[in-house]
Every structure is written in structure tokens, then in C-alpha cells.
């Protein structure tokens, strides 16, 4: 049963109800006015197979936007349509007000992109790769590329064919970020990076957002997005099932109430539960409840129960996220921001 093991010991994993304002914790404004990425009912099919279905997104300038979903949900397909690799026959997709198919080349002047499965030309070394990208972009990227190489501790003199996956990922990030684009589209960018480099990457992305630039960050792990983004969309089976602020996702999660019964097992509790409260798991005297109702209104009821200990908190988002992945039918849930 989900959460059954959590109750052992001293109720360790419940998060505090009072948390910092997540939306502003990185010190940059929540969002600007301009829609950097705008899609409306975007639909793409691989022949009879579904790619994405009626995806509508509106991502504002300066935001750190997480795009979450399990493998095969449609994250990469969405990104490929946005970058003009695929032509969506239904719906519209715009970046910086330009059409993602017909004006793709123009868009990509202001976009940096790291693909999910990054491959680079094996005969190039880091410097030659930077030089090649600089030549295509008709820019001098040497200084910024060196700065980023220092940040990620990458030796640009190594040939791509001799690089590990992590080194290639770092080089991909350098190539995507060196021209300081208005929009960074990163498809699972931290794969292959060690925890220290992941931290540095997230810090750098926060710095990018502070400069008013936008980061579109795709991942299949919530914890990564939770550390970075103030807004996110969750995609499942090609459809957006949540789009809103992380705070809205938290609010949607309700509360977890963990009780330790004074003696024995609370056999009769299930008959006396108030509306909006359900039992999640039992483990001896410990019982985990989920309350979608206002938790303050439940306090009088809780005070009548024969309990030794009580903890209130938000469920961790990972469990909510799993519910999105596994159980919920693919209908859009809008967060407060949309």
C-alpha cells in the first residue's frame, strides 16, 4: 500500500505546511507579459500513432517552465514541433510570435536547444564544435563558451568521440547557451551530469531567468523540475493533464494527516471520517489520511480522536505526480495561473 512504510519511526517525510513562497524563491519575477511559446490545440500524429493531442501552452517571458511527463508521453514531440523538425497539421505553434514551421530558422536565432539524446559529430573537439556553431550563427562565441566550459569544468580540447556521456552533455549545453538566447529549450538536460554539475546547471538556468530570458525544461522527474521551475505542465498520453504554477499543484495535492493511535488499531475510524478525508494506509497504530478538505476545519474532529501523535503536511509532490502518470484520465487540469 502506498505510503505504508512512511509511518514507521517519527513521521519523517511529511513536508511542512508553511513553506517559502516557491514562485519567488529564486528572486526573479514570476513572469513577464510576452508569450514566448504559444501553442493552441497543437496536434501531431506519427501516422496512426498518437504524438501529441491538442496541446495548448502559453509560456511567458522570463519564466522557468517545467514540462513533465513519463517516457513516450509527448514531451520530445512537442519540442520537435516547436523547433520545426515536425510539421503539425492541426493547431498552431508560435515562438516569440513567429510560426514554428514556416519561420523556424528565424526563431532559432534566439533559441538554444539541447536534445534529449544528444549526439555530436565525433570528429570535432569542443573548440571546433563551438567554432562551427559560431560560424553557422555568424557570431563570436569564444568568450561565453570559455566561461561556460569553466563553469561545467569541460576541457574543450577533447574530441567528441573520446567524451563520456556527461562531457557530451556539457558540450551540448555550452553550444546551446553560448549565444545567450532568449529561449532555452532543454530536453532532459541533466541526464548524464553528476549532482554537482546538475546544481551548477540549475544555478545557471536561474541566472538566465533572472536576466529575463526563458527556460523550457523538459524532464520526467518531478524533483528536478520542483527545484527549478515555478510553473509546469504535465503531459500524459500526448495530452496536457496539468498546466499551472507549482503552488497550484501543491494546493491540489491537499494535505496528509498522520495519526498515531493510543492503543490498538483504529478499526472503526473508517466509519467516522468527515467528508473529503480518506484513509491512505494503515500500519499498526499509525494511519495516514488524505484530506482534500480545508484542514483547519478538521481540527475539531481530530481533537476528539484518541491519538498520541499527529502530523499535518502536504504529500510529497512525487506521489501526486505518480497519480497523474498512472491513474488520472487524460483531461486537462488547469492550475491557478491559467
Amino acid at each position: 500500500m502506498r505510503g505504508g512504510n512512511r509511518l514507521k519511526g517519527s513521521l519523517p517525510r511529511i513536508q511542512p505546511i508553511i513553506s517559502p513562497n516557491h514562485s519567488h524563491r529564486h528572486g526573479y519575477p514570476l513572469s513577464g507579459l510576452m508569450g514566448v511559446i504559444e501553442t493552441n490545440n497543437l496536434t501531431y500524429r506519427y501516422g496512426p500513432r498518437r504524438g501529441v493531442d491538442a496541446v495548448s501552452l502559453n509560456i511567458r517571458e522570463g519564466s522557468l517552465y517545467g514540462f513533465l511527463g513519463p517516457n513516450g508521453a509527448g514531451k520530445t514531440t512537442t519540442i520537435r514541433v516547436l523547433l520545426g523538425f515536425l510539421h503539425a497539421r492541426e493547431g498552431t505553434a508560435k515562438i516569440l510570435g513567429l510560426d514554428c514551421w514556416s519561420q523556424s530558422a528565424q526563431i532559432k536565432r534566439d533559441v538554444g536547444y539541447v536534445p534529449g539524446d544528444l549526439r555530436l559529430w565525433p570528429w570535432l573537439d569542443g573548440r571546433a564544435a563551438v567554432k562551427m556553431v559560431a560560424s553557422v550563427r555568424d557570431l563570436n562565441l569564444d568568450r561565453k563558451a570559455r566561461e561556460l566550459a569553466d563553469l561545467f569544468e569541460l576541457d574543450l580540447g577533447v574530441k567528441v568521440r573520446r567524451m563520456s556521456k556527461g562531457m557530451r552533455q556539457k558540450l551540448g549545453l555550452i553550444l546551446a547557451m553560448a549565444h545567450e538566447p532568449k529561449l532555452l529549450i532543454l530536453d532532459e538536460p541533466s541526464s548524464g551530469l553528476d549532482p554537482l554539475m546538475q546544481d551548477r546547471l540549475l544555478d545557471e538556468l536561474r541566472s538566465v531567468a533572472r536576466q529575463g530570458r526563458t527556460v523550457f525544461f523538459s524532464s520526467h522527474t518531478l524533483s528536478e523540475v520542483e527545484r527549478l521551475c515555478e510553473r509546469l505542465a504535465i503531459i500524459r498520453h500526448g495530452k496536457i493533464v496539468f498546466d499551472g504554477e507549482l503552488a497550484a499543484l501543491r494546493a491540489r495535492a491537499g494535505h496528509e494527516i498522520t495519526l498515531r493511535w493510543k492503543s490498538g488499531s483504529p478499526d472503526t475510524l473508517s466509519h467516522a471520517l468527515p467528508a473529503g478525508v480518506r484513509i491512505v494506509s494503515r500500519d499498526g497504530p499509525d494511519i495516514l489520511l488524505h484530506a482534500s478538505a480545508n484542514v483547519v476545519g478538521l481540527l475539531p474532529w481530530l481533537s476528539t480522536l484518541p491519538i498520541d501523535d499527529l502530523a499535518l503536511g502536504r504529500p510529497d509532490l512525487e506521489s501526486l505526480f505518480r497519480e497523474f502518470y498512472q491513474d488520472q484520465p487524460a483531461t486537462t487540469a488547469q492550475g491557478s495561473a491559467t
Binding site: A105, K108, V136
Partner: peptide, 17 residues
């Protein structure tokens, strides 16, 4: 086949270019 098309197409060039 090599998997480099994504990075190539991520550059600001049109298909005709």
C-alpha cells in the same frame, strides 16, 4: 542515423539553406 540531425536542425538555418 548518427543522431546528429537534432543538433543540426537546432541551428538557425532553413532546410533550403
Amino acid at each position: 542515423e548518427r543522431g546528429t540531425i537534432d543538433i543540426l536542425m537546432g541551428l538557425p538555418v532553413s532546410r533550403w539553406q
